[in-house]
Each structure stands twice: as C-alpha cells, then as structure tokens.
Design a protein around this nucleic acid. Structure first.
Lengths: 238, 238
DNA sequence: AGACATGATGCGGGTTCCCGCAACGACTTT
DNA sequence: AAAGTCGTTGCGGGAACCCGCATCATGTCT
C-alpha cells in the first residue's frame, strides 16, 4: 500500500510518518509533498489511493487539492488532518466529498492512539471518521439554529468579498429584496445586532464579516478561494 | 540560565527543547507553558528572563502575554517564533517592545542552524534579531507607500469592528470628515478600488476589511483583541 | 378544501456612506 | 514675505443600504 502525506510542516510530517509506519504495517511506500499543488501532482503521477492531507498550506490549500484529486479518482481515500476545528473547512469538505468515497477529519491535537485508529479506519478500512471534537462543533453551531443554510452561506461569501446587493442578486439568481432578506437572517444568526452595547449601531455588513471570522465560520483562505470563484464567474459573464 | 518555552504545539515544543539544549549549554532548566496565560504565570513565578514565545495560541496570544511580561520585567529577553510572517504580529510587537530590551522574531520554517543562532543572539547575547524573511515583508509593504501610519491603522481596526464613522470620530478624537479622509486613504492603500474589474463597484468598507485580511495586515486575533479594547473603552465612557 | 406557515418579491422612506468642493491653519520652500 | 504643500473640517448631494409593510406563490396541517 502506498500512502501520500501532504503537509508543509516538517515536524508534523515526520510525526505522521512515524505513526503511519507504526499503525499500518501494510504500507510499503510513503510519499511526501509540502503543498497542495505538489500533492496533486504526486497523487496523479503515482496513482496513490490513500492520502493524509493537511488543510493549511501556502500554495494551495488541502480542500482544493482534495477536490482536484477526487475529480480524478473519486475512490481516493483522504484523511484530513488539521490544527483547527474550523467550520469553514468542514463545509468545504462536505461540499466536495464524492458519493461513496472514504474520508476522515482529525485534529492535530488528537492523541497518537486516536490518530492511528483514524489512519486504519479511513485508509485501510475505507470508513468515514470524524473527530469527536469536530462533531461537537457541528452540534454547537447547529443547535441554536445558528447554522447557515447553503444559500445563506453563499450570500455571506459574496458579502465578504464586498459585492453589492444588486450584484449578489445577479450572481445568485435572486431578486434584490431576497438577497436583503438573506442578509437579514445572516445578521440574525451571526449575532450582529445582539453583541456589544445594544445601543450603539454598527455597520451591519462589516460586523457580519467580523462575526463570521471570529466564530471561525469563514477564514482568510475561504476569502481567497471565494475571490478566485468570483473571478472565474466574472470572466464567464462578459 | 533558566528558559521558558511558551508553545501549544507539542512537536514544536520538543523540537525547540532539543535545539535549545544543543545551542545553549548554559541552560540549566527549561520550563514549558502551553498558552499565554500559563506562560505569564510561569514567567512571573520563577523570575525567568529568557523566553521563547509562540504567537498563535488559544487562550491568550503571544503578543498579549509578552506585553504583560515586559510590563513586569522590561529586561526580559523574548524570542518570538511563529508560523507566519504576518504584519499584524509585527506591528503588535513593535508597539509593545520596551526601550532597550532584547527580542527577536524567527519563523518556524527557518533552518535549525538559524534557529540556534537566534537563540544565542537573543537569549544569551541580548541582541535584537529579526528573520530575514520578515524583514523582506516589512520592506515590501513599506516601499510602495502602502504602509499604514498608526492613525490609519487605528481607524482600520475600528472599521473592522463595524463601527460607524461618527463613533470612530468620537473614539479617536477626530472630526467626522477626518475619519472619512482616513478611510479614503485606507481604501487607496489597501487597493480597494484597483483590484478586480474596475467596472464593478464594491462595498468599500467590507472590501477594505477583506483586503486587510488577505494581505495579512490584520488577522482574526487582531479582531478579537481590538474588540476587547473597544469594550473597555465603552465601559469607561458612560 | 380551507387555514396556516414560509419564503420570494415590490415599494417607500429614513439612515449611513462616499466623495467633490472649498475654506482654514501649520509648516516648508523659494 | 509670498507661494506652495499637507492635513483638518464643514457642506451638500447622490448612491447604497436597512427594513417595515404588503402581496403572492408554494407547501403543510387539520
């Protein structure tokens, strides 16, 4: 069995390599890439089917690399391994995972035992496995109906890019007023109105972006990715 | 010589410990804290004067911890050690470093040799040492007069919190129009108008925050810290 | 079928924001 | 001293934004 590690931090990479050798004796070869682009190439070149993927990397992040890899070989098994339980990543992964391929998500703070378990479950057994900590996050944000639905999230991204209502409406195929309603529910769910002194009025749009950031609903990488999406959409619009 | 390591990632901490033992034979004792609060206590309790400080930590980030430590013992020698060459951190450090105390800033991607050099230079010799990569960043952002002055940066933070012009004016002691002028130059320096299709008009405020984030001028921690500042200011205002 | 909830859309008005124009003071240059 | 530069402030208008109110379509419950 051949495994690819995509991880730009050398310490973490070698720790992984260790744990991997220890947990999976069936591993015959370990490849290593230090960013998303190199990881993609490596995965393609050597037809690797088991991958451990860091999420935060410079040149191309793990989610984009995974999308490319899965587009090519949907049966690839990918274990994501990240520093943070960050909702933006979760949502990103949920959107790109193919119908019945194996994947997992585990935190770097997990114990070695749990990591080894995840390695075996996902890469060998082809199961789906999500770290308990992350599940907890999902629950938390799901319970007080703070959870955004997909169209709200889309509008949030557009807002975060600085688009105006009219352009969002055009891009998402909604009427102007509908976009504003989405914004309204965003303000509600993000707690734009409730936090700080209730007295002082804020710039709602900026505050929404602020809240989305500090609650880890989106992050800087999300913004960069969204910007790229926007640019391709703009290009295909005339 | 007694050294304190403040670092929440266990791999990095043990790597540091290794390098430290190797580079500085004069070290007699190594303490370890895994977040800013614990680091502060440790530093106070044991009157430690040489510290290696990670910047990104959960409970309290390295800059705040360093400020508290320096407030107590300005002669403390602190080597910051971080993943990113992030302008927000640079600015934060520049603002809190006491008159003539030794400090350094080195990236986690630096070679072991360079790390050892920095350890010796800062912690033993009491020099000031900044990683070449970081210096490059400073230059880059300084040259095309994109660099923000302090008052512009203050307005940027207020904007990022979602404050309205009037409130910013009150908080910073400027007139409304002056605030707007600051915003204007912010938009200029952040490239709010120039990027993307020049045709499509954007929400400038949101776009400014977006640009500030993707250029690493500010980050989520900055926002959280700024929010705390704002709250204390609000409390003392009536 | 009828009552009801939910979401999309239009209209109108009040507020905030962006910014051109102009005046003023402090400081520098010639 | 005269001229020029730079930052601050006021005024005013047009654009964008927020949102209450009303309407209409769709789907659900009784």
């Amino acid at each position: 069995m051949r495994v690819l590690i995509v991880e730009d931090d050398q310490f973490h990479a070698s720790y992984l390599q260790d744990a991997l050798a220890e947990a999976l004796p069936e591993v015959t070869e370990i490849f290593h890439a230090t960013d998303g682009v190199a990881g993609e190439e490596e995965a393609r070149k050597d037809e690797i089917e088991a991958i451990i993927m860091d999420l935060q990397m410079d040149r191309r992040n793990g989610i984009e690399a995974a999308r490319a890899i899965w587009a090519r070989r949907p049966q690839s098994r990918i274990l994501f391994w990240s520093n943070y339980a960050d909702e933006a990543y979760l949502r990103g992964i949920a959107q790109i995972v193919p119908e019945d391929s194996a994947y997992g998500y585990i935190l770097k703070t997990a114990s070695r035992e749990r990591l080894k378990l995840a390695l075996r479950a996902v890469l060998v057994e082809g199961q789906i496995m999500v770290d308990r900590e992350i599940h907890r996050l999902q629950k938390r944000s799901a319970s007080p109906r703070n959870r955004l639905d997909d169209s709200e999230f889309a509008v949030l991204l557009d807002l975060a890019l600085g688009l105006q209502d009219k352009l969002i409406a055009e891009r998402r195929g909604m009427s102007l007023r509908t976009v504003q309603n989405r914004l309204l529910s965003l303000y509600e769910k993000l707690g734009v109105l409730s936090d700080l002194d209730a007295e002082l009025t804020l710039n709602k749009r900026v505050r929404a972006l602020n809240r989305a950031l500090v609650t880890r609903m989106i992050n800087t990488e999300t913004l960069e990715a969204a910007q790229r999406d926007l640019e391709t959409w703009l290009a295909g619009r005339g």
